[in-house]
């Protein structure tokens, strides 16, 4: 039976990709953000996930306004990252896991989510940068199932609906007969606003509310409407929807492993968190005790 170990939640600002390409990780501006990652990689090294369910939003690489799905599930064997308009070199993207994609698709539709399925799909910086941060050596040694949520064109799905989507994915993972070690990623945010006279807006108080509740009471994040989230978090801060959906995929009880929050990177309040499931915690403890015995 597959094991769901937990999730990595992170901002996905395109400038992070630029910093990686320039090798700017240790510059004073970038160091506080990149310093969040060694503990994440340590956890990944302990847990060794083989599959990543990636909750993110597309910013105009794969989807345009001609066809804008509310929820889109990738079902491809291969995904690509391409030039998003700034001429940055594309990041390597790991292969897909079509069988698991279809198991998730079957479950989501059975649970009455009317999703879009994608057998040919580009994934943008919101998926590729988090993978490059988690596995900086090159292509991440995992298979991925991308799940894109519309955070671009209103009306957006409600936070409640996104959490329910994630919980339906959790059911699919619980029923999956494979024996992989699976993790989720939720990317975007936290508070930021790129457009309008309020550009530059951030809200550390709301971000802290989200981070404090993500593990213990994710339903608390669903009490705000999308309009209220825009007000509290900024027009692009609504990307918290991706975090909320990813949290739903982890089931009821999770533990916070690490947290980093730094202002600013680019125009964004940047956050990185790791949450782990009970199963992962037990395995981690067993592993730690074994190591202690050997020492």
């Amino acid at each position: 039976m597959a094991k769901v170990i937990g999730g990595v939640f992170t901002s996905h600002v395109p400038a992070i990709g630029g910093a990686i390409h320039r090798g700017a990780q240790n510059e004073p501006y970038w160091k506080p953000f990149f310093d969040a990652w060694p503990p994440v990689r340590e956890w990944l090294g302990e847990q060794v996930p083989e599959v990543v369910i990636m909750f993110y939003n597309d910013h105009g690489l794969n989807f345009f306004l001609d066809k804008m799905p509310t929820f889109a599930v990738g079902a491809a064997a291969k995904y690509r990252n391409e030039d998003e308009g700034w001429g940055l070199p594309p990041f390597p993207v790991p292969p897909g896991h079509p069988d698991l994609s279809w198991a998730i698709i079957e479950k989501l539709v059975a649970e009455e989510f009317d999703i879009t399925t994608c057998q040919d799909m580009l994934v943008d910086h919101a998926a590729s940068i988090p993978l490059a941060l988690a596995w900086p050596a090159g292509e991440a040694p995992v298979k991925i199932v991308p799940i894109a949520i519309n955070t671009v064109q209103h009306p957006l799905p409600s936070a409640k609906r996104c959490l329910a989507l994630g919980r339906a994915v959790a059911k699919a993972l619980a029923e999956w007969q494979g024996d992989e070690t699976i993790m989720v990623m939720g990317t975007g945010g936290l508070s930021h606003q790129l457009d309008g006279e309020r550009a530059g807006f951030m809200n550390p108080e709301y971000d802290t509310f989200c981070m404090d509740n993500l593990s213990v009471d994710p339903d608390a994040l669903t009490r705000h409407s999308v309009h209220e989230i825009v007000e509290l978090s900024g027009t692009q801060g609504v990307e918290i929807l991706n975090w909320i959906a990813a949290r739903g995929a982890l089931g009821d009880k999770v533990h916070e492993v690490s947290r980093s929050y730094h202002i600013p990177i680019s125009n964004t309040a940047a956050a990185v968190m790791v949450l782990e499931t009970e199963a992962a915690r037990a395995a981690g403890k067993a592993g730690a005790e074994k190591t202690a015995e050997l020492a």
């Binding site: 064109q153 606003q193 457009d195 309008g196």
Partner: peptide, 22 residues
């Protein structure tokens, strides 16, 4: 919301050509 523009159906229709170019 002051200083904030919600990109909704009306904006998406109005802006289609400009956004398509971008």
């Amino acid at each position: 919301i002051p200083g904030t523009h919600i990109f909704d159906g009306a904006a998406a229709q109005k802006g289609y050509a400009l956004n398509a170019m971008c």
